[in-house]
């Protein structure tokens, strides 16, 4: 069997999304959902409720300790943002393992993902592009495929090293060449299996190749640029360092300037540390 055949099996066998998140995500596209319904679902899980309150009270979400109940959190942040917090909290434990194939220590992928989501949201705000909420979620999920590919990257280490020594090319190109699939595609397949919305799936699928996307360009560009900024800042770089390519078209499309990048980087570090303490 080829790498690709085995990887396809691993994608199919990847654990389903926790059922609570699944039932909640059904409401993500429904703007008129009664928040009593959400409240009833979430409060059934006391650990989750506690963490939603911690997040809602974090400096980043502007709570500063004033949100005392789930109901207040829903009123304050809105149903959509609460659903995203729930999704973040249920997915984050999946992102903590040590990943020797990519050379990422325990929690590094989670930090990279959180960093990317927060930076994408800050860039959206700075550049007055909508989808601030969606890009946070996509940022958090964009590298889920790394979890699946890691053991195969480890196994094919010699091939990867050879490709890098030969020089030109990005890590994603080598993944496709050696394993038959990139981590971006693998991640997108899992998110499809989880029945997440098409913009989230597209965000993961094209985060290294924004030029290949046919829809959701703004979201994909923002996540791509935030991901590159995170890598550039050394958050989640792994064995092969900064060998990733920034797509010039994305830079142009969103009107990105160096001051936006630097301001975003300066704001994101402390926010990431705050969320990292809550995700476990």
């Amino acid at each position: 069997m080829s790498y690709l055949d085995i990887i396809e099996q691993h994608i199919a066998a990847f654990p389903e999304m926790p059922s609570l998140s699944q039932s909640l995500l059904g409401y993500l596209d429904d703007p008129d959902v009664d928040f009593i319904v959400i409240q009833d679902l979430v409060q059934y899980d006391p650990g989750l409720t506690a963490n939603v309150l911690r997040l809602a009270n974090s400096v980043y979400f502007g709570g500063a300790g004033t949100v005392g109940s789930l109901q207040q959190a829903l009123v304050r942040l809105g149903t959509k943002r609460i659903l995203e917090l729930v999704l973040s909290l249920t997915v984050s434990p999946r992102l903590v393992p040590n990943l020797p194939g990519y050379g990422l220590q325990a929690r590094e992928l989670l930090r990279h993902s959180t960093w990317t989501g927060l930076a994408a949201r800050e860039l959206a705000r700075l550049l007055s592009i909508p989808h601030e909420d969606t890009v946070f979620t996509v940022g958090l999920l964009h590298d889920l495929g790394v979890i699946v590919l890691d053991p195969f990257v480890q196994e094919a280490r010699i091939d990867f090293n050879e490709s890098f020594e030969r020089g030109h090319g990005s890590f994603e190109a080598f993944e496709k060449e050696i394993l038959g699939i990139s981590h971006a595609e693998a991640g997108a397949r899992i998110l499809e299996n989880w029945h997440l919305s098409p913009e989230i799936v597209a965000g993961a699928r094209w985060h290294h190749e924004p030029d290949q996307a046919t829809a959701f360009g703004e979201i994909i560009n923002l996540v791509h640029l935030a991901d590159m900024l995170s890598i550039s800042q050394g958050v989640g770089t792994g064995i092969y360092g900064l060998a990733h390519e920034v797509f010039s078209e994305s830079v142009r499309a969103v009107g990105l300037r160096k001051k936006h990048l630097e301001y975003t980087a300066s704001k994101t570090l402390d926010r990431m540390r705050e969320l990292d303490a809550i995700f476990s």
Binding site: S232, L242, H244, S248, V251, E262
Partner: peptide, 16 residues
Amino acid sequence: GSQVLDSQGVFKIGER
């Protein structure tokens, strides 16, 4: 002071 590959230069934070 490393960089990702960026032909436009906005990501040359390392160089700056």
